[in-house]
Simulated assay, not measured.
Amino acid sequence: MTPPEIFDRTLRRLRRDRAAAGYADHAFLREAMLEGIAERIDAVTRDFSDVLDLGCFDGSFVAPAGATITRIDPGRAFAAGVGGIQADEDRPSFADGAFDLIVAAGTLDTVSDLPGALALARRALRPDGLFLGAFTGGNTLSTLRAVLREAEGDMPVARIHPQVDVRAAGDLLMRAGFALPVADVETLTVRYGNVWGLMRDLRGMAGTNLLPGTPPLRRDTLSRIDQAFTARAHPDGRTAERFDIIYLTGWAPAPSQPQPARHGSATASLTDALKSRS
């Protein structure tokens, strides 16, 4: 069965093309994600030779020394700017086992078929290959959500797409067939002088609404959004917005990896162990 199209693919490409020229001025979220991914790569005691940058933006991810890197992006401008391939993350056409490291920073939250994208990434990895992903989820944009609900009153419109929480992210890794899956979250708080600064950042990082058929905001609604956002300002006049960065770590299965103990293979009784502590 074909999964539903949650996001407008054409609009997603156009928004990324619009953002490409000035992206560096609004790239703080992806920069934070890449720092977290670099720390996780540094903690791995092995070398990588073939790397895929899945959703590459401006190509700012630096591959490990000596590795060959392939970059793809759903936007034509981003892909062309780094000599990469234009393709959606849930529709790539790579051979099974083509890579030993896949990095996906900042795009998975707007992939229509996220389970499919993760399954394709797992298939594209060699045995014991590593997948590292990072995207915004959880309670991201909680302030903007609140002011939108307040401004639109009794007839709110879905203008921020549903967010994946950290528990669901871990479940998705397992569903995709990754071994040793880990999902964790880090929260980044950014303070804005007004709501227009937040909206400029979202446009500049290609992070605006991609839900199909969303009507535009009316002028009076925008005024109420501005007022509601300003009303939440701290004493210094700046309003805090929240970004939850969810990190995914998973390995392509391999016989050399640690395996869970076979059911019934324990040599000690839990009941006896608990009695010994009483």
Results as ranks from 00 to 15, higher is better:
4 P>T: 01
8 D>R: 00
12 R>E: 08
12 R>M: 03
14 L>P: 00
14 L>Q: 13
17 D>M: 06
17 D>A: 01
19 A>I: 00
21 A>W: 10
23 Y>S: 02
27 A>I: 01
39 E>P: 11
39 E>R: 11
39 E>Y: 14
41 I>E: 10
45 T>R: 13
45 T>L: 15
46 R>W: 14
47 D>G: 14
50 D>Q: 12
53 D>H: 04
56 C>A: 01
59 G>I: 07
59 G>A: 12
59 G>T: 01
60 S>A: 15
60 S>R: 10
63 A>T: 15
63 A>M: 08
71 R>M: 09
77 A>G: 12
81 G>S: 06
86 Q>N: 05
86 Q>T: 05
96 D>V: 03
98 A>E: 07
101 L>Y: 02
103 V>H: 04
109 D>Y: 05
110 T>E: 03
111 V>N: 03
114 L>S: 02
115 P>V: 13
115 P>F: 09
121 A>I: 01
127 P>H: 08
127 P>I: 07
129 G>N: 02
130 L>F: 09
131 F>W: 02
135 F>D: 01
138 G>E: 09
142 S>V: 03
143 T>P: 04
147 V>S: 14
148 L>R: 05
149 R>G: 14
149 R>A: 15
149 R>W: 15
159 R>W: 00
160 I>Y: 06
162 P>F: 06
163 Q>W: 12
166 V>Y: 04
166 V>T: 08
167 R>T: 13
168 A>E: 05
169 A>V: 00
169 A>H: 03
170 G>I: 15
170 G>F: 12
171 D>H: 10
174 M>H: 15
180 L>P: 13
181 P>Y: 02
182 V>C: 14
183 A>L: 01
184 D>I: 09
186 E>C: 01
190 V>S: 11
190 V>P: 13
191 R>V: 10
196 W>C: 06
204 G>K: 03
207 G>H: 04
209 N>Y: 07
213 G>M: 00
217 L>K: 02
217 L>P: 12
219 R>V: 08
219 R>M: 15
219 R>Y: 13
220 D>R: 04
223 S>K: 05
225 I>M: 06
232 R>H: 09
233 A>S: 05
235 P>W: 11
236 D>A: 00
241 E>L: 08
241 E>Q: 14
242 R>F: 01
247 Y>V: 13
250 G>T: 06
268 A>F: 02
272 D>Y: 07
272 D>N: 01
274 L>I: 13
274 L>D: 10
275 K>Y: 10
276 S>V: 04
276 S>R: 02
277 R>Q: 08
